[in-house]
Structure formats: C-alpha cells, structure tokens
Amino acid sequence: MYDWPVLQPANDRFWRTLVERLRDAGIDAPGELNRHDNHAALRGRDDLLLAQTCGLPFNTRLKDRVRYVATPVHAMEGCREARYSSAIVTRRGFDPDRRTPEALRGLRLAVNGTDSWSGYEVVKRWFAAGGTPMPAPHLVSGGHLRSMQAVAEGQADVAAIDAIALGLARNHLPELAGHLQVIGWTESRPAPPFVTAGPADDETVAALRTALHDALATEPGIREALGLRSVAVLAADAYAAMIPAESRTAIS
C-alpha cells in the first residue's frame, strides 16, 4: 500500500529480509515484489503469499478471499499501538478558523478511492459527527500520495490522509508535507493488515508472522525508513466495525 517510488528501496530491503526467513522456514517465497500485476486482483489470488490491504475491503469484498496475518505497529503521529487515524488536511495557510465539518462545506474534497476506509469512509463519519453531510468528492485521486499532491497543488481544498501516509511524506517527501496543514483527526481503527491467500494453511500464517516479527526486530534501518516498530496479532473481530456506514445501518 505504501510503495511510492521513494519508498521502494526500503520496501525491497524489507522483502529480501522476509524472503530469507521464509525460505529458512521452507516456504518458496519469490525473490522480488510484484509491482506489475493489478494489486486489487493480486489480493484475491490463491497464490498470494503476502500483501497489505485497507481494512474496509479486508472486511468486505476480500472477507472470504484472504487470511489475516498481522497488523503493523507504526511510530508516527496519529498512530497508537496497532491503530491509526486519518488527518484532515488543507493547504498550509488555509483559513485557520475553518476546522469544523460545517466550516468545510462547499470546499473541493479529494478522496483516494471510494473503497478506502482512511480516505473516504472515515471522512463520511467525520462530517456526520459534526452534523454535516460529506460533500461529494471533487477528485478521486487513486492514492493518498496523489491526494496530498492535489491539495498541495491547489487541485483540491481538503482531504483525509491516513497517519501512516502522512508520516511517510513528512519523513521522505518533506517539501510536499510542508505544503499541508492538519486541521483535525478522525477516529482511530486497526491499521491496514498484512494478509495472505484464503487457502493458506496455519503453518504458512505462523511462518509469515514470525518472519515479520523477526525482520523488524533485527533491522533498525527498515524500521526507521518505513516508520514501523513491530507487528501485532489482533483478535479475530478487530476489523468488524470497518464497514460502510450504510451497511452498518442496514444490519443494526
């Protein structure tokens, strides 16, 4: 999910470290990350070894197609333990008094995708908590990085950026992050989980958990570059509340 060009060297190092441990455990892990195939399709394949996905599709369209492995624990503002929030951001210098949902009505909203928890669903809830319907998205950017760029470049006025993406931008793209200001934070939920293929057996899941834990415990450079402290294994129902608001209303 966080494989921007500037982060790819660190992600490649992380993957190579995981591969060593997985192969030692008898798992024939591929030597390179797959950056060529459609990521949404990859997450539903029976030969998927490891991927990361947003909590909303994990709990909806991927629910019976992947197995939960672990949840990352990040060391960034807006992250606590294995949970994260989204920052409501505007361009730096934006009217500091316009920080409430009501005050943001009529502005151009950028969302990363309508199947995203952190960039779309949580925004609806943030506006609803303020007694205001979310404005129709002005721009569907395709990713948090592009949403940040849209706000910074004046193509949109406001966006919700997950704390992980914002922290990575602050660490690796400070010029971009410097054009943004945080005017609020949303509720927190479990961070985007690592998953494997639905048919994966318990031994594979256990090996993946061990590899993730050991790689992060022994590679401080990877932890620093990716803002990752460790991984946690959460309860089976940890992501149960991460469904579209209309679905929750329908089943309540």
Rank of each mutant, 00 (worst) to 15 (best):
M242E: 11
P137V: 10
H39D: 03
A82Y: 05
L109R: 10
L166D: 10
L7P: 00
G167N: 14
T132M: 14
R65K: 13
A207T: 04
V66S: 06
A150K: 14
H179D: 11
A70I: 11
A129W: 12
G55I: 06
I222P: 00
A159P: 03
P57T: 01
G93P: 01
A41R: 14
D3K: 04
A235L: 07
E175R: 15
L22V: 11
N112P: 11
F94C: 09
A40K: 10
A82R: 07
S118Q: 10
V66D: 02
G184Q: 11
E246Q: 10
A25W: 07
V140C: 08
L208Q: 06
L42R: 06
H74N: 06
R45C: 05
G78T: 03
Q8A: 06
I251M: 14
W126Q: 05
F94T: 12
G130F: 12
I27D: 05
V231I: 14
R23W: 01
R170G: 04
G178I: 10
A207D: 06
R67L: 14
H36S: 15
D64E: 15
E153V: 02
Y68L: 07
H213F: 02
T249C: 08
I183A: 11
V233Y: 05
A165E: 10
L48R: 05
A211Q: 01
A29M: 09
N38R: 07
P137H: 08
W117F: 15
I88P: 03
P244Q: 04
R91M: 02
L109G: 07
L168S: 03
R125N: 11
G130E: 13
D64W: 00
W185I: 14
A169E: 13
G55C: 05
M134L: 14
V19W: 00
T60L: 12
D115I: 00
V66Q: 03
P190F: 09
M148Y: 04
H74A: 06
P133A: 07
D3P: 03
H213Q: 11
R125F: 02
V111K: 00
G178F: 13
Q8E: 08
V140E: 13
A75H: 09
V122R: 01
G227S: 09
D95A: 15
F14A: 07
I27Q: 08
R108W: 01
L42G: 04
A70H: 05
T90A: 09
K63V: 12
D47P: 02
A225D: 01
V19Q: 00
